[in-house]
Write a protein that binds this DNA or RNA. Structure first.
Lengths: 223, 223
DNA sequence: TAGATTGTTAATCGATTAACAATC
DNA sequence: TAGATTGTTAATCGATTAACAATC
């Protein structure tokens, strides 16, 4: 299976292919061409073929891709069939929102605990997940295998708790704190920076408003 | 000021430059070179100069960039000095988190109302913002100028409320619902898709784990 | 077999980086 | 003036798209 170039750009398209394929599977469509997949996702058919082919020949000439088969392959590539453990560090509004958002566990992402320093939160259960004293983080990590730490704490302490997690072998970080983290090479950080996203939106909005609707109302997919 | 090529890639770097410049301003550093800015942000100095220059000659040969000046220019470019109104559609966990996150208003992004269909939420105040009946959305939009709608509702109704907003002149959408929206050309959508982000993290994590720490422990910035 | 559509190589396009002249 | 660093053009690199042979 080890093939070809695989840039982060490719990887970020995979979930989009996966979503489209899931929708097709849901309405029990059994085959799809790169052409059709392109229509659904907004990507170039050629690009889709190349992306998928870099992971293996999932298609069949003259036929296209088998939906069920491709779905399974994408799940395997993305690792959605494997069970992953997560902890949430910082049970504030955002942390709570993530804890209550149960959809992740459908794809193997399980939150097994949350941590906070706030007395009033410690001991409570949110979305069926216990909130522990952040003081116990290190001990918890010694006793539990954790794949991903979700950072929903203040940016000023994000690095501190990242270090503790790294020390204890956590290799994945989903970072909502607007702070660039320093981590060792074999550790992965995925940033979810709300403010940067909003600023970007603000720019494009300003842009479009100053452009004064040059082409009124034609519907098109965003992106 | 109208100059050069400005790809989305450039625009998405601007908030990163802005953050770095803010940090410098905070510790009262008055000048910075593209070289130093590169160190702080992880971008190539050449790229930084080109990016900034596409908006105007903010620097000075032999000196670099004046921090205060560059900060102001970035604010102007990003439109952070202008006041923007936002509404939150869907006062669930995520919606609430955003309503309580007051930092946005520091840069001119003001949430003026929220909407939900849930009786128990309607009439309540969250983070100082009133939650209204979603039935009143259309009326509210007729009476209030809204720049950005934050979509934190279920994906199945995201398009429906987007249409209402578009109809009433809303041109910016910050979309947390995992659903590609169809909008007219002069409307901007910025997607914040948690699940795609998490899937991507999952992939890279799997990748790094299978790579089995080929180069133990060297610290480096992520990204 | 003919038609369709992939897999894969080649061509194009755009974005990043290097180089250097301009100039503070 | 000499040194530094931008602004800007040119070179490189990588990613996207087109083309087409392979093959179901």
């Amino acid at each position: 299976m080890e093939k070809k170039r695989r840039s982060p750009a490719i990887i970020r398209r995979l979930p989009k292919y996966y979503r489209a394929i899931c929708e097709l599977a849901e309405i029990t469509i059994s085959r799809v061409s790169s052409q059709e997949l392109g229509k659904l996702t907004g990507f170039n058919p050629s690009q889709i073929r190349q992306d998928l082919n870099s992971f293996g020949g999932f298609g069949q000439q003259g036929y296209g891709y088998n939906v069920k088969n491709l779905k399974e392959n994408l799940e395997k590539i993305l690792g959605l069939t494997e069970e992953k453990t997560m902890i949430v560090i910082g049970a504030g509004n955002l942390g709570k929102a993530i804890m209550r958002y149960s959809d992740f566990s459908e794809n193997g992402f399980h939150i097994i605990s949350a941590f906070d320093r706030d007395e009033s939160k410690i001991g409570r259960e949110i979305g069926g997940i216990e909130v522990r004293d952040i003081q116990e983080l290190e001990e918890f990590l010694s006793e539990n295998q954790v794949d991903i730490a979700v950072l929903t704490i203040h940016k000023d302490v994000a690095q501190k708790y990242t270090n503790i997690c790294v020390e204890k072998g956590v290799q994945g970080f989903w970072n909502f704190a607007p702070k660039k983290l320093r981590v060792p090479k074999n550790v992965v950080v995925e940033n979810m920076w709300l403010n940067e996203s909003l600023y970007t939106l603000g720019y494009f909005l300003k842009d479009v408003k100053s452009g004064l609707e040059y082409s009124e109302d034609e519907m098109e997919d965003e992106e």
